[in-house]
């Protein structure tokens, strides 16, 4: 059992906040609240990233996830006006089963990671910081091909999203309209 240090206290606090926000997201009836709680969860995780000396990832977490993606979520929620869904649950038994299974998995994880064979690895806080330089160097040398592929994936996603959300007009009218234009 490690000595209780400030680091550990901070970690446990942040971890507790992360789990609490995740739980809140799960059980919140209002989707907007869920989204906001998830943003909070992302922020706590970003905090952990900073602690582990990964400022680039931490910032990306906040800007990309908490910023861009969650804004997108909120936008869609409000666009559709589906903050709430009728409370008719067909699969209540399933929900119970899911929670139980989740508990089983968590127990299993605890058993494996903490009790059965705890790893001797440790995570150092406040140690070496992985600079943006280093990540950039890796991305443009060793991971060049995957990096390029990600750009392609994003392109496909953009195009796909546009096509999927394009308003479908009746075929005949669409053609006419285009001719007139």
């Amino acid at each position: 059992m490690p000595v209780i240090t400030l680091q550990l206290v901070i970690f446990i606090t942040v971890a507790a906040l992360a789990i609490a926000s995740a739980l809140g997201m799960l059980f919140s009836r209002n989707t907007v609240y869920s989204a906001l709680l998830l943003v909070f969860n992302f922020t706590t995780v970003a905090f952990l990233y900073f602690m582990m000396g990964a400022p680039f990832i931490g910032l990306a977490q906040i800007t990309v996830y908490a910023g861009a993606i969650m804004v997108l979520f909120l936008f869609v929620i409000m666009l559709l006006g589906t903050e709430q869904i009728a409370r008719i649950e067909q699969l209540s038994a399933q929900s119970v089963a899911a929670v139980l299974l989740g508990l089983v998995i968590i127990t299993e994880a605890v058993v494996v990671f903490l009790l059965r064979n705890p790893t001797s690895l440790v995570v150092t806080s406040g140690g070496d910081v992985v600079s943006v330089n280093e990540i950039g160097g890796l991305l443009y040398s060793q991971y060049l091909l995957p990096f390029e592929i990600t750009s392609f994936i994003l392109l496909v996603a953009v195009v796909g999203a546009i096509i999927l959300t394009k308003q479908e007009k009746p075929a005949g009218k669409a053609v006419e309209g285009e001719v007139k234009k």
């Binding site: 399933q94 089963a97 899911a98 299974l101 989740g102 089983v104 998995i105 299993e108």
Partner: peptide, 8 residues
Amino acid sequence: LVILAGVA
């Protein structure tokens, strides 16, 4: 759910 059960 079934997938989760499988994982467990």
